[in-house]
């Protein structure tokens, strides 16, 4: 379990995270949603252990700041794709945590090859990562995190660069990880998608958690609209599924694009 208590993060004089409290359950999928500038990415980086903070962020009772011993994978929203690096070399780097830097163990290679298959990347392994399409690259990024065999995987907007079909595929892959026991934390713009996959949703605004809870409850809560300044509306489909769409101040038009 990751326990966040009274977490405050400042960049110079700007308070980015303000007295934030949150519990992230092991082997669960927690989505962090909220408007731009709410501090979602900063929270994710703090959970990773890279950002200094006051308050407490503990993973199984140990403070995370600068703790390099945990195996936490991070999938950035805007990746840095090394020029001239092939997919296989990129994925091999992902084994560094488990196998050691510069080591190429048989077990690692088998794991990489299996991941190439499950992520539908077979045939791309000798291509340069910079020459991949957006969807392929996103799968490679996720594959790089998967071969790390992490306890926790943090994903910053994993679907933001993808068309709808790949969004679902990516989310399905992440769900497989979760079912294998990995703790998943994602920041998401798309609340509908978050609700479809995650058990727990935390809604952030202005650096703190405005509300959190079981996904279905959060999505039905009136406070959710408040977090987005009433610019969203929630609709229930015939199947009983709830969708969140962007809404004009009053009308809440059904035909608007659900992606914010």
């Amino acid at each position: 379990m990751i326990k966040v208590e009274n977490l405050t993060v400042k960049f110079q004089d700007t308070v980015v995270l303000d007295n934030l409290n949150l519990e992230i359950k092991t082997s669960n999928w927690t989505s962090i949603v909220g408007p731009n500038g709410a501090g979602k990415t900063t929270l994710l980086k703090t959970l990773l252990g890279m950002t200094s903070y006051s308050g407490s962020v503990s993973f199984n009772g140990k403070e995370v700041y600068k703790d390099l011993s945990r195996n936490v994978a991070f999938v950035p929203q805007r990746p840095i794709v090394p020029i001239g690096m092939t997919v296989i070399e990129y994925l091999t780097l992902g084994r560094a945590k488990v196998d050691g830097w510069g080591k190429e163990l048989r077990r690692g290679r088998i794991f990489i090859e299996e991941t190439l298959e499950t992520m539908q990347l077979v045939g791309l392994q000798d291509r340069f990562a910079t020459q991949l399409s957006g969807g392929e690259l996103q799968r490679v990024l996720l594959a790089r995190a998967i071969v790390q065999e992490p306890q926790v995987i943090l994903l910053d907007e994993p679907t933001s660069a993808l068309d709808l079909q790949y969004q679902i595929r990516t989310m399905d892959q992440i769900e497989i990880l979760k079912n294998q026991g990995v703790t998943v934390v994602t920041t998401m713009h798309d609340i509908t998608l978050s609700n479809m996959y995650s058990e727990w949703i935390a809604v952030m605004k202005n650096g703190s958690v405005l509300l959190e809870g079981v996904s279905d409850e959060v999505i039905s809560s009136p406070q959710l609209r408040e977090a987005f300044d009433n610019s969203i509306s929630v609709h229930t489909l015939e199947s009983g599924k709830k969708v969140v769409v962007a809404a004009r101040a009053e009308s809440g038009r059904r035909d608007s694009n659900p992606r914010p």
Partner: peptide, 18 residues
């Protein structure tokens, strides 16, 4: 060997233990 981590984003490098 560790230098290879610097070719990734800082977050990825950190998550891999450097």
């Amino acid at each position: 060997k560790l230098l290879d981590g610097l070719m990734l984003s800082d977050e990825e490098a950190f998550s891999l233990g450097i």
